[in-house]
Every structure is written in structure tokens, then in C-alpha cells.
Design a protein around this nucleic acid. Structure first.
Length: 431
DNA sequence: TCTGGGGTCCTAGGACCC
DNA sequence: TCTGGGGTCCTAGGACCC
């Protein structure tokens, strides 16, 4: 039996935990550059503000109704998530943290009334963190997701499902006929794994609710769509096909990409952005003890603006896999110079690290051929400083278009003289 | 004026090999 | 003259997730 614990309107709930005056007010949290609404309180949802909706589209309406709009504070949300996950882990023996606001818990081997246990856990999470949650329980992960959807909908929209399924919904405890009724009341597009495209195709075939979908023949679904969708059908039928991943595998790619607040034209500005993106990605890479074999960089103009449009990406292979910021930045800038065309208003850029593998192999090679230190100590020092004093305390800079060499720049305003002194002792500071 | 930032998995098709 | 077919690897693109 799987449980899915999901924080309601997570970012908004995090903000409310520290500002109780926001309760019962319509609140939205906005993405970077205050571009889109990425979390909405129930009150904001009722006003019709959609997930991912551009803020400029709803601003007028929001002003009329006094919607409070907040810029996202992802550091805060990460901390709140850690707390919520620690508490939620007590629900069973194994936990998979699926996203910042959701986790699966394997409840196999837990005796007693699972529904009551989940209700107790819900109260405890609320007390520990101030975050309201919904908990769904079912024999497969897809059904647990669906149960969670029921738990939240029954709470928020009375009448959508039986009221006793609100907040905690245990589909495993339901008689078959009741389960069918729940599936029949669920739109097929609300099933985990069925997105917009496929729901449209299913609708064309007369399949609009989850019960009809669950009654399809898996082999037919595989032939007509894919093995992925076949698995979804089987899971809805109660056959568990997706295992709990309690020890998440290391990432296969690491990206850092951003939209700019306003259009960027010059190569120098793009180099500056790409340098920062590559450095951020490199730091994530070291955190999971991996090395990258390739650096991909992309730039593009806004698809929402009139032409001319320009969009290109390129991959730069590295001579040997590395996690060194300097090497990764160098490769990213090299790629950028290759794809850059003057005369366009660029709105977004990004750096992706690909071909990732474990750094232990590289360590072995280093020992074998006694290669010079690739800056490992320096990188570790940078990471420690940034962990301690905040991201961006120390960064790598790239020279602009006129000078080819790179320079190190220290942002010293956050460093005390003592730390500056010890930093000066490091060989790189003279570079 | 103003439109997020990450990820994963699968498939199709081409290149290449035997 | 006649010119196979299966396996593997890689890449691009699609679809999905939060």
C-alpha cells in the first residue's frame, strides 16, 4: 500500500506559515522576474487565476480583489519541505521524496487502521510546519496519486466526491463499487501520466473519465499509444508497476536556465549570464559527486514577441569529464560564442551538463597517471564559502569580448577581513 | 511593457557493423 | 545482372511530471 502526502498550495502555505495575516486572503507566489503565478491559494484559484498564468494577464483582476502577490523565496520553501518530509517519513518504513511538496511512503507491513494513521500524521505535519496536506492511500502509486486528488478536491470543492474522503482518502479501504464511482467522477486528464495531448486523443476515442480509461485493454493501449500509458492503465487496475524509489539515482543531467527580466542583446551580457549559469550548474554537479562529459548551452528570443526569432543550442564535449567550474564555464562560453548572432533580443539562456558519471572513476584515473590537481580543492573551498555565506558570495567571472583571458573576481562585501585574508592565502586568488 | 525552471522516459530514424 | 537483415548506438523530438 502506498501513501502520497502532498502539501496544499505549497509555496503559498509556506508564506502563510510565517505570515498568518495572509490566511483567508487570495495569495499567489510568482516565478522569477515575477513572470507567472506558480502557486495559488484556494481563494486565488476561485478567482480564476490559473497555474502558470502570466502575471500581467491577471494583475488587473488581482488588484480588484486585493490579491497578495509575492516573489518566490525558494530557499524558504526548501527548508519547509525538509521539515515536512522528515515528519511525513514516519507514516511507513520507506519514503520517496518525489518533489518539493510531495512524497510517497510505502505503508507495506504497517498494521492497524491506515486511514486513522494518516489522519494523525496530517495533524502532526500541520502542527510541526503549519502546512496543510492531503494524503491519498492506495495499492499503486498511480491510484495513490488519484486518492490524493480526491482528498484535496473533496475538501476544496464540496460535492465533487463523498465528503468523508476529504483530506485523507484511502482507496484501498473502499468497496469495489465505491471505487468505480470515484474513478467515474474523475476526469481522465487528472490521472497521473495523462497529459493534455493524450487526454485529447482519449476524448476523441470516447474516453473521458478514469473508469473508462481503467477498463481499456492494456495491450491495445500499448499498441495505440505507448508502454508508458499501458503502465498507467495497469496501475489504475490495481497492478503495481511503478516501484518506490527510496534511494533516488543521481541525476542524468543538471541544468540551470533563466529568463531575463528584460531582453538582452550584447554578447558581453550573455557571457556574464552563461558564466553564472554554468557555475551554478557546476556546484549542483559537485554536490552529487558527478563529473560532466558535455556542456550544452542555449539562447533564444521570446516566442511571444513578433519575429525575428532566433533559437539555437550547441553541445561542447569536454576533453575529460570534469566538475571544475573553470572548465565548465570555459566550455559554456565557447559554445555561446559559436551560436551567438548579433541583432536579436534574447530573453532566455541556459546551461545543461550532460554525460554525467560518478567522480570515483576519475579519482582512480588521477591516481594512475598522476595528473595535476584539477582544481578540486579550490572548488570545494568555493562551495564551502557559498554554503556558509550564501549563494553568490564568491563567483567566477568571464572576461568580455575584448579580452580572452578569464579573471577571478571576489565579491568581498559579504566577507569579513579575516576571511578575505585567509582567502588571499589560496593560490587561486593571485590568478 | 509583462509569459518559470527544472527534470524523466520513450520512440523513431539514421548511421554503422557484421 | 541480382543487392539482406538484424543489432546497436546516437540524436532529436515528443510527452509527461511538479
Amino acid at each position: 500500500m502506498f501513501a502520497l502526502v502532498d502539501g496544499n498550495n505549497f509555496y503559498v502555505s509556506c508564506e502563510r506559515a510565517f505570515r498568518p495575516s495572509l490566511k483567508r486572503h487570495p495569495v499567489v507566489v510568482l516565478s522569477n522576474n515575477d513572470g507567472c503565478a506558480i502557486s495559488r491559494s484556494n481563494e486565488a484559484k476561485e478567482l480564476g487565476i490559473k497555474m502558470g498564468q502570466p502575471w500581467f494577464e491577471c494583475r488587473e483582476l488581482a488588484e480588484v480583489y486585493g490579491v497578495v502577490a509575492l516573489s518566490a523565496n525558494f530557499t524558504l520553501y526548501g527548508d519547509m519541505s525538509d521539515r515536512m518530509m522528515c515528519t511525513a517519513a514516519g507514516l511507513g518504513h520507506n519514503q520517496e521524496i518525489y518533489s518539493i511538496d510531495e512524497c510517497f511512503v510505502d505503508m507495506a507491513g504497517i498494521r492497524g487502521d491506515l486511514t486513522r494513521r494518516a489522519q494523525t500524521m496530517r495533524t502532526r505535519i500541520l502542527q510541526h510546519t503549519g502546512i496543510p496536506t492531503g494524503i491519498g492511500i492506495a495499492p499503486t502509486k498511480t491510484l495513490a496519486k488519484l486518492a490524493n486528488h480526491v482528498a484535496k478536491s473533496a475538501d476544496r470543492k464540496p460535492g465533487s466526491y463523498p465528503a468523508e474522503l476529504a483530506r485523507v482518502c484511502n482507496l484501498g479501504a473502499l468497496p469495489a463499487s465505491d471505487l468505480d464511482a470515484v474513478l467515474a467522477a474523475t476526469e481522465v486528464g487528472d490521472v497521473w501520466g495523462v497529459g493534455r495531448r493524450i487526454s485529447k486523443q482519449l476524448a476523441a476515442a470516447g474516453i473521458t473519465n478514469a473508469l473508462q480509461f481503467a477498463q481499456l485493454d492494456p495491450a491495445t493501449v500499448r499498441r495505440r499509444w505507448s508502454v508508458v500509458l499501458e503502465r498507467t492503465v495497469r496501475e489504475l487496475q490495481g497492478q503495481s508497476c511503478i516501484r518506490l524509489e527510496d534511494a533516488p539515482p543521481p541525476k542524468q543531467e543538471i541544468a540551470h536556465t533563466r529568463s531575463f527580466g528584460r531582453p538582452v542583446r550584447g554578447l558581453d551580457d550573455l557571457i556574464q549570464a552563461v558564466t553564472e549559469f554554468a557555475a551554478r550548474a557546476a556546484s549542483k554537479l559537485r554536490r552529487q559527486s558527478s563529473l560532466a562529459g558535455q556542456v550544452c548551452v542555449f539562447i533564444h528570443t521570446s516566442p511571444f514577441r513578433p519575429p525575428p526569432h532566433y533559437s539555437r543550442s550547441t553541445s561542447v564535449p569536454l576533453r575529460r569529464p570534469t566538475a571544475n567550474t573553470q572548465d565548465l564555464v570555459h566550455a559554456a562560453v565557447l559554445g555561446l560564442r559559436a551560436i551567438y548572432r548579433p541583432g536579436f533580443d534574447y530573453i532566455k539562456a541556459g546551461v545543461m551538463l550532460l554525460d554525467l558519471n560518478d567522480d570515483s572513476v576519475e579519482q582512480l584515473e588521477l591516481q594512475l597517471d598522476a595528473a595535476p590537481d584539477q582544481g578540486g580543492e579550490l572548488m570545494a573551498a568555493m562551495d564551502r564559502i557559498n554554503d556558509r555565506f550564501g549563494r553568490g558570495t564568491i563567483t567566477l567571472a568571464s572576461a568580455g569580448t575584448r579580452r580572452a583571458e578569464r579573471t577571478w573576481v571576489l565579491r568581498q562585501q559579504l566577507l569579513t577581513p579575516a576571511y578575505t585574508t585567509s582567502w588571499d592565502a589560496l593560490p587561486v586568488a593571485k590568478a
